[in-house]
Design a binder for these strands. Structure first.
Lengths: 238, 238
DNA sequence: ACCCATACTGCCAAAAACTGTCAGGATGTT
DNA sequence: AACATCCTGACAGTTTTTGGCAGTATGGGT
């Protein structure tokens, strides 16, 4: 095995195996002698890896050259922590979980000192008025947006009238107190806003509208901006 | 030169030099023959690099094995975009700017396809009731929290009474409509919450309270949790 | 302080990997 | 079609790497 291949693999082993880890354990993992393993460690060090080794203890990969050179300022760390904390309160359990995972992944890439800054960030968020829990069909709606897949539902509008709709879902908007879907409505042949809590029997249709989502959304936004600019009239809503 | 060293350097050259780039150019850069360069390319490919090579054109590094093994799921990307968008509406210009920068840094590390998912994320946020712009002293307060530096101010409480305060600032809380500082108040010898818009003449003191911020904040939170659990009484506020 | 576990480094002969030259084939662009 | 460039095999000579051995240094626990 070429040494260069082995060095790549050694870095992977370092990331995956519990630390601290002894040279003997790594050598076993790599099928080389300990002497060679010591040399490999030295090579990785020359290549930029910061590997801490304590006699009687073992090795730790303290900074990984494969990790991004990206370095967040302290204020950027605050923004990330605060933003992801907001998402955790957004009322969407799946998104809250994803926010946690994203934060964990980012934290794992940070040097220890910056990790501590993130864990003990100054900025916090607290919401007195909680959003109601997201309806069960939020995940389905989101996936249909991603996949540019049409969506069928019955919708109860503000007057209490129920209608069957086939829409092209474009975007999910988190408002102060509720969730809204921006979509193109095939029944009305126009853009419409739908409140998620007024939807029933939401199902993914067999048809797709790809690849139209991004331009349509851009158009909807332009329309909304145009209406906002033309006065205090509230944008049309289903 | 050891081949393993050269492979690291070749990846660097790939990232820095304009693409597409010919084998001849890279060989020159690395001081090896073209034949060796072809072998090196093959070695990088075996190691996971996705390098596109077209006869008559040159090479492109399409996916870089040095990029983080961390990969955000699509939902995690949504959470990041949404969270940082919330921060941009938080009423704190410095933090908003930091959120933009953080998002740009994260985006830059993503493969192209995932970058597009981030740019055209489904989740958006819109706030009807904007927070008032943060008072000018927010930045100073934040820095004093970071540095565990005492803060002096005059404070107008809910009854309109003004008092001079020296506090140990612990945390800035973004509420629905306003900003709040959690602090230890040396005047009252107790934890207190202060609304930022009721502060005047905010200055950093000469003294520090480090390293006390994290345990104090933990204690304050425990106190708040205790009060919440004991009934509907609203926590004490200055 | 002592003991144990482990990091660390130099040396050397044998083994393995690598190199550049040469030749020839394939492919993309204009 | 012409040109530029990717691609790959073969081979003799060169360079690098390996593992075993020996000895030193160091961190952590008791």
């Amino acid at each position: 095995m070429a040494k260069s291949d082995r060095l790549f693999r050694l870095l992977t082993a370092f990331r995956l195996l519990p630390q601290p880890i002894t040279a003997a354990r790594l050598a076993q993992e790599m099928n080389v002698s300990e002497r060679t393993l010591y040399r490999d460690i030295e090579s990785l060090r020359v290549g930029g890896a910061l590997i801490d080794g304590a006699a009687g203890v073992g090795y730790r990969l303290t900074e990984d050259p494969a990790l991004p050179p990206q370095m967040f300022t302290r204020l950027e760390v605050e923004a990330l922590v605060l933003g992801l904390a907001e998402v955790r309160q957004a009322g969407d359990p799946a998104l809250a979980k994803a926010a946690e995972m994203a934060m964990a992944k980012i934290t794992a890439t940070l040097p220890e000192r910056v990790q501590r800054q993130a864990i003990h960030a100054v900025s916090q968020t607290y919401r007195f008025e909680k959003r109601p829990a997201a309806p069960a069909h939020l995940g389905l709606i989101r996936e249909c947006c991603w996949e540019e897949r049409m969506l069928d539902m019955s919708y109860t509008d503000a007057t209490g009238e129920v209608s069957l709709r086939r829409v092209w879902p474009l975007s999910v908007v988190f408002l102060d107190h509720m969730l809204m879907l921006l979509a193109y409505c095939t029944l009305r042949q126009d853009f419409r806003k739908f409140m998620l809590h007024r939807m029933q029997d939401v199902t993914a249709a067999e048809s797709y509208f790809r690849p139209r989502r991004v331009p349509l959304l851009r158009e909807f936004h332009a329309q909304l901006r145009g209406q906002t600019g033309s006065g205090a009239r509230k944008p049309a809503q289903s």
